[in-house]
Write a protein that binds this DNA or RNA. Structure first.
Length: 420
DNA sequence: CCTCCACAGGAAGCGCAGGAGT
DNA sequence: ACTCCTGCGCTTCCTGTGGAGG
């Protein structure tokens, strides 16, 4: 029987696991100097008592958008703090500096105008219990606070595309500037949807996008350097082979360039090494980490899927298994890829599955939408039927081993139906 | 060439739940 | 508490689309 001290004293390759967590903000952000400089330049007028321009930052996930902005915000706050400390100085800039403030709002959680404003007020006036006030009241409170302090307020709206009534929110916040005689409100919007700008009302677009910035995905070399940086502090010395770092970087770059994925690979491979009592992480561990990470993602994606999409996927898995058997029995070496299934075939099977699970089936039209969703998630791949096939249809292939998929889904259904 | 097949995907409309306005 | 409205999931209907077959 192992004791806790056994487990705690087990040899580990990690020095500080926190460094590998996606929330960790390193003190140095490599390859983002230019972007950080631009943001700082854009924000700096607030330190002189002028209104900074709004900034809109966009780029794919894991390109360091949030980290960069947070980094600037931290610098900004520390600057105003030191300025406040020696506010005895008569310089005007010191006085203005002491009245600038940043406010970070994650719009995934605060996803409406009301909630965002409420959050801002809470930051400005922590003592105030803002629950139960109407929008107008909260707005007044915010304006009052900005006006009486004369402070410049910089609001960071992370994942800004999640806000439902964004046009209204932007209107409200930009209008605030017109009403204020001193102080002001500026925005930093962050989004990972590159097309998001287009669906904005032209007026809010011009106000939010006064200053635009794009974060390009990291290249394999940059990823390698970032990983290296984290490895130095996150792992014990000489526990990660250089080629493993490069492999993790290459794998990530070929997928999405999402730095978080690279860190996840490191974390996983470290855990694998610890489990097996291996002292050094090599390419092998990284490969394994990738495999488990991928299936984990798939498992997560599948089990959170709506019932009917799961049934469609189950139908695909079923037919894929059957077809695999048949081709192996009859033709032996299957000619290229008849592991593809036709759309109609899958729909029939889906209807059977629906009957079996006692659920009313969806129409064929909606089933096609389900297929699109599944493809988006990478759970299936589809191609257009070319020559050799009657009519025009989509050919479907499952993205993961069908037996595994089937197991996951059937387990899910047994849980759901067991509860029933 | 035309027609048919086996679909894809747009448009319109419908019932419902939940939020806003009063 | 009440209506009214809006967004969402879905169906029905319809118009392509591209190869097979006569």
């Amino acid at each position: 029987m192992p004791s806790f001290s056994d487990i705690l004293n087990r040899p580990t390759v990690f020095a500080d696991r926190n460094v590998l967590s996606p929330h960790y903000v390193p003190s140095i952000l490599p390859f983002r100097d230019k972007e950080i400089g631009k943001i700082m330049a854009a924000v700096s007028p607030a330190l002189k008592g002028e209104r900074p321009r709004n900034i809109f930052v966009y780029g794919k996930t894991g390109t360091g958008k949030t980290a960069s902005v947070k980094h600037v915000a931290a610098k900004f706050e520390s600057h105003t703090a030191t300025a406040r400390a020696d506010a005895a100085g008569t310089a005007k800039s010191a006085a203005a500096s002491s009245r600038a403030k940043t406010c970070y709002v994650n719009c995934r959680m605060y996803n409406s105008r009301y909630r965002v404003i409420q959050k801002i007020v809470k930051e400005l006036l922590p003592s105030l219990d803002s629950m139960g006030f109407g929008l107008a009241m909260l707005y007044e409170k915010m304006m009052e606070s900005v006006l009486t302090s004369g402070a410049h307020l910089i609001v960071v709206l992370d994942e800004v595309d999640m806000v439902k009534d964004l046009d209204d929110l932007l209107y409200t916040l930009t209008r605030a500037n017109d009403e204020l005689k001193q102080g002001g409100v500026s925005l930093i919007g962050i989004s990972n949807k590159l097309t998001f700008k287009d669906q904005l009302d032209p007026r809010s677009r011009s106000s939010l996008c006064e200053n635009e910035m794009v974060f390009a995905p990291y290249t394999a070399n940059q990823l390698a350097a970032i990983i290296d940086q984290r490895v130095k502090t996150g792992f014990k010395p000489h526990t990660v082979e250089e080629s493993a770092v490069n492999l993790a970087a290459a794998l990530t770059a070929s997928e999405t360039g999402d730095a978080r994925y690279a860190l996840k690979l490191l974390m996983k491979s470290g855990e694998i090494a610890d489990d097996r009592g291996i002292k050094k992480i090599t390419d092998k561990e990284i490969e394994e980490a990738r495999h488990t990470a991928d299936t984990e993602v798939a498992f997560e994606a599948i089990s959170t899927l709506p019932d009917h999409q799961q049934m469609v996927l189950l139908a695909v898995a079923h037919l894929a298994i059957d077809k695999g058997k048949n081709t192996r029995l009859t033709t032996g070496t299957a000619d290229e890829d008849d592991s593809f299934l036709t759309s109609g075939e899958v729909y029939e099977e889906y209807c059977k599955q629906a009957k079996h699970h006692r659920k009313p089936r969806r129409s064929a039209r909606w089933y096609r939408e389900y297929l699109n969703d599944l493809e988006m998630l990478g759970l299936i791949t589809t191609i257009e039927s070319g020559a050799g096939m009657r009519g025009r249809t989509r050919l479907i292939r499952i993205g993961f081993p069908p037996a595994d998929v089937k197991k996951i889904i059937e387990k899910n259904f047994s849980i759901i139906e067991g509860k029933d």
